[in-house]
Design a protein around this nucleic acid. Structure first.
Lengths: 211, 211
DNA sequence: AATTCAATCGCATAAATATGTTATTCTGCG
DNA sequence: CGCAGAATAACATATTTATGCGATTGAATT
């Protein structure tokens, strides 16, 4: 029996969810709440395996509740977020803070039960539109910015050394060239990157994954 | 009717998949292939809506096929990867290169059809163990390194300005303090971060998401 | 009341950086 | 061949940084 707790401020919705859980042989409803103001204590009392957490609740949002639970050290309990909106920032925040699933309220009852089981078994159930968002965020992060400012190979060497925090002298030693040559290269680098200080060049290098 | 193409080197498996697709009223099997050596031409000929792509194939892996297709500019066609292994690197590579779904071969026929429909409708069907992996990668990237070096609020202000490429003078103006105070703060920052140059501080700030 | 600590400021000095100008060598390209 | 561009180097100089040694104020803690 998978132990469930429900957080949902809308009474009708909450009761529907409770009925759904109770009607199934695989689940046991430990408790249900209209707010998550006391989520840590709730958890200590009921020790559910899976928490079904609405996001839009008065007083404290489901995401805040999730954060509270995770920062209190309870990382084992599966938390499945439930919401009407699949807006970008909420999905992002939920995932960043260790949600195990993210479902829209339009999910059918049968599927919801399956998803809760998925979460319990270590899966990450997501409404497919949410999954698409997650993949998009992912490719955003990992896509090559591909703007290398037409730096020559040597200039890239120098820039890399700059990023490592080396001084001109150290770069000269590392690359076996004179400090004046280092200066020359760096002047060229600044020109190409349209900056005029080491710090700006390094920051730009980080932002463009050139390091 | 959703038009499907199948890539799967194992003949028996391929025939099973073909039968499955053909038996359904919602799908039309355009073609099936034992390798993806000619994936771009295959696509041009058949124009499928969704491609079901095995990863482990001789000659060219499904991921290489995916990359070829995407770099050729065909970003609309949904590509659902299919594999026996849910190993980390393959999932990562597939997602990075614009796969729309990632399913394990143990997926049941009924579910597979549902997943293909999901992909066609813009979703991102994933076996739940794969979804978990994706979320983990995600939290890895975005997790708070949480090492803020015990910087005070004001010190963080100064560090942020440093990262923006500001000189001491500019920081002083921005924060309405004297340049000597900026110096003091920066000295303290260097102490706390164990560095001794602006560049190192900025690089460390980037690596720890303090910017 | 005493203490701690963040935030503010000043002064001095050595080191590093930014910038301009100029020049030589070598390589690849039309 | 002649030319463009990359890599190398030198010299001069103004600005910026790094660092040391102070000091005062105010808020929070003990």
């Amino acid at each position: 029996m998978i132990k469930i707790c429900i957080y949902e401020d809308n009474k009708q919705m909450r009761e529907s969810l409770c009925l759904l859980i109770e009607s199934s042989n695989d689940f046991k409803l430990e408790a249900s709440f209209g707010h998550c103001l006391d989520v840590v204590n709730d958890y200590k009392k009921n020790k559910p395996d899976v928490i079904l957490m609405d996001i839009d609740m008065p007083g404290k949002t489901g995401i805040e509740g999730l954060i509270e639970l995770r920062t209190a050290g309870f990382t084992d309990v599966k938390v499945v977020m439930l919401t009407v909106f699949d807006d970008n920032t909420n999905v992002f925040e939920a995932i960043k803070n260790g949600a195990n699933g993210y479902l829209l309220k339009k999910t059918s009852p049968v599927q919801l039960l399956q998803y809760l089981k998925d979460a319990y078994e270590g899966g990450a159930p997501m409404t497919s539109s949410v999954a698409t968002q997650v993949l998009n965020m992912f490719t955003d992060v990992y896509k090559q910015k591909n703007d290398n400012y037409n730096l020559s190979e040597r200039e890239r060497d120098v820039l890399k050394a700059l990023v490592k925090g080396y001084s001109y002298k150290m770069i000269a030693d590392e690359l076996f060239i004179s400090i004046d040559t280092v200066r020359s290269h760096i002047k060229k680098i600044y020109e190409k990157m349209h900056v005029n200080s080491k710090t700006e060049a390094v920051a730009l290098a980080f932002r463009n994954n050139l390091h």
